[in-house]
Amino acid sequence: MLRDITLGQYYQTESVLHRMDPRVKLAGTLIYMISLFLYKNLTAYILAFLFLLSVIKISKVPFKYMVKGLKTVMVLLFITSIFNIFYTKGEPLFTIWKFVITKEGVANAVYIMIRLSFLIIGSSLMTLTTTPNQLTDGLEKLLGPLKKIKVPVHEVSMMMSIALRFIPILMEETDKIMKAQMARGANFESKKLMEKIKAMVPLLVPLFISAFRRANDLAMAMEARCYQGGEGRTRMKPLVYKKIDYVAYGVLIIYVASVIICGRLIPIHLL
């Protein structure tokens, strides 16, 4: 059921990507996202697609597992791009009822669909292969320079990783509460909107209470272990770049360079 949503979850397996330094993966995700928005033509997207495909292959995360969790998000994406078809002005293609479908509209919708789905898969690939702890460490290290201008880098990255860690926990909790209420005859599968909203109350109230309880417990557990923020905190396993990380940076640079060169020199346009 809800447990199937894989957004933000870690997938335990042994792969090059799992072993990589989190900083590389964070930077890589960011660069990949930027590369998606550099050019609006098929050439760039084909390159992005190939890159994503090979990274998925390397990660050893089953593609089925990844996509299963993204279904809901994909529906949202689809709706967004449909709106784009209707609201883009340009050269008319054909009309349905009162709506003029334009060439640009269709192209836009397809581009948005591609961009956002690559973006989501790309970033979920990062969380799938990086434990929340590593993610925090990486983020903190990358944002380190901002400490100079009084940005609470440690706190921010700690909050982020706790939030990430809580996603699967809350999913599990939701699943449990849903089952418990279903055992009392609750119906979460109703088609009617009003009933759907009403059915949420027995789910959301216990969920919020449990989230607060967990947050409280976590805060206490952290305090009990003398956690007091980033000040003067040292690491047991400091992050060190290894050979593989330099190779990965190299691959990233080659990828971005080829997107820029090919995207500019040999642009292929849709329609």
């Binding site: 449990k176 509460i177 089952k179 418990a180 209420q181 055992a183 009392r184 005859g185 609750a186 119906n187 109350v201 027995p202 109230v205 216990p206 209470i209 449990s210």
Partner: peptide, 24 residues
């Protein structure tokens, strides 16, 4: 009755919470 069933209580008062099942 689930493990820690008290975590599924949600109504404003005890009586309406117990009514939830038969009402459904």
């Amino acid at each position: 009755v689930f493990q820690y069933p008290e975590h599924q209580l949600f109504e404003v008062d005890v009586f309406s919470d117990v009514c939830f099942g038969p009402k459904n």
